[in-house]
Design a protein around this nucleic acid. Structure first.
Length: 352
DNA sequence: AATCCGTGGAC
DNA sequence: TGTCCAAGGAT
C-alpha cells in the first residue's frame, strides 16, 4: 500500500475531533477531556439498538430505556412483557429478548459489571463480533476490530475491493484490522462509522469533503459510488393472512402473546390465521364476524404480507379458544409490533 | 453457509 | 410505487 495505516488513522481522528456527532450515548468533548469514560451499560444498550437500525430511530427508544432502567441491574430486574412493550416498533425483536438475557447474565454471572474484553463480551446473548468489538473499544479502550456496514463500505472504497459482499467480508475485516490503532481505538471505530454515515455514504458519497480522499483507491479510479459491490438479492414472496380483532362489551381486546422464537417472537398480536399463499380461516372464537373490506399491507425482511380483517363484538361471558382479553385500561397500541398496530389503526377506522 | 429476522426514511 | 438499506446476530 502506498500510504501507511498511521497516516489514514491520523487524518481520520483529526477529522473526527472536529466533526463528531453528539448522541445521547456519547460522552461529550468536555467530559472526555476530563477523563470521563462512557458507561458500558449505555454503550452496550445503544449498540444493540443500533444493529441494522438508524440513529434517528434509536434515539427516542434509548432515552426511554435509560430513563426507565438506568443501569444493568434495573434492566435485569424488569419484567419480560414490560421490556418487549418498550421495544415495540423498533423491530428485530430477538434483540429485546437477548437484551434481557444479557442483562441477567451480567447481573448473575459477572457480578453486575460488563466484562471488559471483546472475547468475553462476545459470549453474551445478542452480542456478536461487531457489538463485542464496539463495546470493548468504546467503553474499555481495547484496540478491537470494529466492522459494521459503514466500515465495510469505507474500507471497500479505500482499497478498491471488487469482491461482492458478503463474500468480501473476511477480506474487509483483514483490511480494517490493519487500520485499527492502539491509541484511541474507540474514537477510531466511531470515526469510521461517522465517516460512513455522513461522507462515505452508499449513494452520492461526498468525496470532495472526505478527510481520506487522498488515500482512497476507489476515488482515484472514479468508482467510489460503485463500491462495495453486492450479490443480488432474492425477490420477496407475497403472503396473505387474516387478523381477528375482537372487542368485548367492556372494551377489553383479545390479544395473543406470540411464541418466543420466530417472527415477532415474544410480542403481543391479534389472533390470526397462518401467513401463507392461501391462509385458512381460523377465528379465535365463534362470533358474528364483520369484514370491513380493508387490507393491511406490511413488508418484512423476506416477504410481503397482506392481511384481511375480521371484526367482532362479544359479550362479557365469551371464552376464546386462544388469546387473552386485555382490559381497555391496559391496552396500548404502541406496545404492539408495527404490523399489529397497523391492524389496530385499520380496525379503528372501520368502527372497532 | 444460507436463511431468518422489522422498520422507516431517503431518493 | 419501487428500491435500497441502517452501528448484525442466531441458527
Amino acid at each position: 500500500m502506498r500510504y501507511d495505516a498511521k497516516d489514514i488513522g491520523a487524518a481520520l481522528l483529526a477529522w473526527y475531533d472536529g466533526a463528531a456527532r453528539m448522541m445521547p450515548w456519547r460522552v461529550g468533548p468536555a467530559d472526555r477531556a476530563a477523563g470521563v469514560r462512557p458507561d458500558p451499560y449505555r454503550v452496550w444498550l445503544s449498540e444493540v439498538m443500533l444493529q441494522q437500525t438508524t440513529v434517528a430511530a434509536v434515539e427516542g427508544y434509548f432515552r426511554r430505556f435509560t430513563a426507565r432502567w438506568p443501569d444493568v441491574a434495573a434492566l435485569a430486574a424488569a419484567e419480560d412483557a414490560e421490556v418487549m412493550a418498550e421495544w415495540a416498533g423498533l423491530g428485530y425483536y430477538a434483540r429485546a429478548r437477548n437484551l434481557l438475557k444479557c442483562a441477567r447474565a451480567v447481573a448473575t454471572d459477572h457480578g453486575g459489571r460488563f466484562p471488559a474484553t471483546a472475547a468475553a463480551l462476545h459470549s453474551l446473548p445478542g452480542v456478536g463480533p461487531y457489538t463485542a468489538g464496539a463495546v470493548a473499544a468504546i467503553a474499555f479502550d481495547e484496540p478491537a476490530v470494529v466492522v459494521d456496514g459503514n466500515v465495510e463500505r469505507v474500507v471497500a472504497r479505500l482499497f478498491a475491493v471488487q469482491t461482492p459482499l458478503p463474500a468480501a467480508k473476511p477480506e474487509l475485516v483483514a483490511l480494517a484490522t490493519r487500520l485499527t490503532p492502539a491509541e484511541r481505538p474507540g474514537d477510531h471505530a466511531q470515526a469510521m462509522m461517522d465517516l460512513g454515515a455522513t461522507i462515505c455514504t452508499p449513494r452520492n458519497p461526498a468525496c470532495p469533503r472526505c478527510p481520506l480522499a487522498a488515500f482512497c483507491a476507489a476515488r482515484a479510479q472514479g468508482i467510489a459510488a460503485d463500491l462495495p459491490r453486492k450479490a443480488p438479492k432474492a425477490a420477496k414472496p407475497l403472503r396473505r393472512g387474516i387478523a381477528y380483532v375482537v372487542r368485548r362489551s367492556d372494551g377489553a381486546m383479545l390479544l395473543e402473546r406470540r411464541p418466543d422464537r420466530g417472527l415477532l417472537g415474544g410480542m403481543l398480536g391479534w389472533p390470526g390465521s397462518d401467513w401463507s399463499a392461501a391462509p385458512d380461516d381460523a377465528p379465535p372464537l365463534p362470533a358474528d364476524w364483520h369484514d370491513p373490506g380493508a387490507e393491511v399491507r406490511h413488508v418484512f425482511t423476506h416477504f410481503e404480507l397482506r392481511l384481511a380483517l375480521r371484526l367482532a363484538h362479544v359479550g362479557l361471558n365469551a371464552v376464546p379458544d386462544r388469546g387473552t382479553f386485555i382490559p381497555a385500561a391496559d391496552f396500548r397500541p404502541a406496545s404492539l409490533p408495527t404490523v399489529m398496530r397497523k391492524v389496530w389503526d385499520a380496525a379503528a377506522r372501520h368502527g372497532t
